[in-house]
């Protein structure tokens, strides 16, 4: 299984762009999809993904596994579907989130935040072990944007992720936009969080746009990357090294050339930092 070189940039493979991507084959390091959209036995969607796979490395980004649910009611079925997809597609990257989504058989289909406690860390190590043993590969776990903070807290999210990576052997998917959104909403220094991360543990970075609503930044994934997030991305590349980076745009999809433009900018930022990075 091919691994991605650190300097590559990718975009999400979205249905409105299929034709253009297949016809023009833009120079991209990889394409990313939501795993749950491809829990199918066959048909047009799977065909498109397999066609993409023939031309590009694929990153499977899951949103529904719910690594942090206190009960496990829905995990087995979900994991079986994910395994089937991973075996079929042989992706370059597989990722999920530091979140929970369901309880008692109900799934909320959103990324709900977890308290950053020792209890949660221990649970996540178990859950990540189970996933990695089943899939027979390393997964990446992504930091999430949160709109509430728990009173109970033992460490920062980045410290928890770094320790999770250390104990389970998983990698980290650093979402720079999520880190920025949280830093603004909760008033902390995102640079200090970068310093809590072990460079070798970072397997991928995400870049996305956000929106401000009632003095709260919302991680909408529906806009260009903001200047502040580009600056944080550059800081992340300097401290952690260039990493495979995804331009994440899920709603109000623009023309493909806009995504490619954002991807080119990411590539330029990463290249600029490459010479001065930690050896």
């Amino acid at each position: 299984m091919k691994t991605l070189s650190d300097m590559v940039v990718g975009i999400g493979l979205r249905q409105p762009h299929y034709r253009e991507v297949f016809e023009h084959r833009p120079a991209l390091g990889f394409l990313e999809v939501h795993s749950e959209n491809f829990f199918l036995d066959g048909g047009a969607s799977m065909h498109a993904l397999e066609r993409a796979r023939a031309a590009y490395p694929i990153s499977l980004h899951g949103v529904g596994l719910s690594l942090g649910s206190a009960d496990d009611a829905l995990a087995q079925r979900h994991l079986a579907k994910l395994k089937r997809l991973v075996d079929r597609i042989e992706p370059a990257l597989v990722s999920e989130h530091l979140s929970w989504s369901g309880l008692g058989g109900q799934h909320f289909n959103d990324l709900l935040p977890l308290p950053h406690t020792h209890e949660v860390l221990a649970l996540l190590v178990q859950r990540v072990d189970r996933v990695q043993n089943l899939l027979k590969r390393r997964i990446l776990v992504e930091n999430v944007s949160a709109y509430v903070q728990y009173r109970e807290r033992d460490m920062s999210e980045t410290a928890l992720l770094d320790e999770l990576a250390r104990r389970s052997g998983c990698g980290i998917l650093l979402d720079v936009n999520n880190l920025y959104v949280n830093a603004v909403n909760f008033g902390f220094d995102p640079i200090a969080c970068l310093d809590e991360l072990t460079p070798a543990a970072i397997g991928e970075m995400h870049l996305a746009g956000h929106t401000e609503v009632d003095s709260c930044l919302i991680d909408t994934h529906g806009a260009r990357v903001s200047d502040a997030v580009w600056a944080l991305y550059e800081a992340a590349c300097r401290r952690l090294g260039p990493k495979p980076t995804l331009i994440e745009w899920d709603t109000d999809l623009p023309a493909l050339e806009v995504l490619l433009g954002e991807a080119a900018t990411a590539g330029a930022v990463a290249a600029r930092t490459a010479e001065v990075c930690c050896g």
């Binding site: 199918l40 899951g62 529904g64 979900h78 058989g105 109900q106």
Partner: peptide
């Protein structure tokens, strides 16, 4: 009939 799966299909 609340959603009971991460697979919205």
């Amino acid at each position: 009939v609340p959603s009971a799966s991460g697979d919205l299909a």
